[in-house]
Design a protein around this nucleic acid. Sequence first.
DNA 1: CGCCAACTCACCCTTTCGGGCGATGGCGTA
DNA 2: TACGCCATCGCCCGAAAGGGTGAGTTGGCG
Lengths: 137, 137
Amino acid sequence: MTRTVALSAIVLAAAAFLLEQLEYRFVLKTLPAEGYIALVAIGFAALGVYAGRRLAGPAPTGAFARNDAAIRELRISTREIEILEKVAAGGSNKEIARDLAVSPHTVKTHVSNLYQKLEVRRRTEAVDKARRLGMIA
Amino acid sequence: MTRTVALSAIVLAAAAFLLEQLEYRFVLKTLPAEGYIALVAIGFAALGVYAGRRLAGPAPTGAFARNDAAIRELRISTREIEILEKVAAGGSNKEIARDLAVSPHTVKTHVSNLYQKLEVRRRTEAVDKARRLGMIA
DNA sequence: CGCCAACTCACCCTTTCGGGCGATGGCGTA
DNA sequence: TACGCCATCGCCCGAAAGGGTGAGTTGGCG
């Protein structure tokens, strides 16, 4: 994000420099001052729109940013997150157990521990809360 | 959204007019041309950022756009969507029944019908699929 | 080396879910 | 009017999930 800001600033500066050069070489000689000003205004408004969109956040790329802080805070282990994701994907305990090559009971234990840490009593509730906290996508 | 576009255009036009007036009255007389150009550039870049954010839509504010097409396609009723949302929020059949002031069995029926329409067998699966299809947030 | 956290597994019991059967009243449309 | 969709409600039963208690293994850390 910070890099995006710097990049935008550099692009804007470069554009300003270019425009200034253009002023003396071509435009001012063929256009009235108002026309040149208008061009600058339009150009920078466009640049502003572009920069603003980049700065507006993860709208298009939509890469999910996991909230590790919350995960650490609630002392949720990596294995638990792994299972939490499979629960959120709609897996039953038995299916998840097969996926991870462990006993169904082990999955049940992990899920149970997740309930305590998330302070919920049902898997749909757990998924909802974990999603709100940004632990899963 | 369309109104926002028009509004932004009007604001930009007004600003351009104002700046042009300012040019003749004050600025040009005390600043070199480059300074004035820079001011215009900065101003319009800022306006562009603002307008761009408005136009970029609800990226940060995150207003959810429901996929009505998918809902119609799968013939999911409004009541079913209502219940689907409560299921996604982690409610049990009994809780949802209380919320909607109906019998737990009625909720169960709606949920069952949802499973058939979504082609799933569990509520976590239903929530996941509905979310992927954009039916719920 | 001893402790702790994480991961693993098991039995028992209650609650919730899900599937299958069926049923009624309202409402819009073919 | 008859048919279809929607919303509502019921019972039965098997599957899944959830709660409690207990316990074994491993790896890291003081």
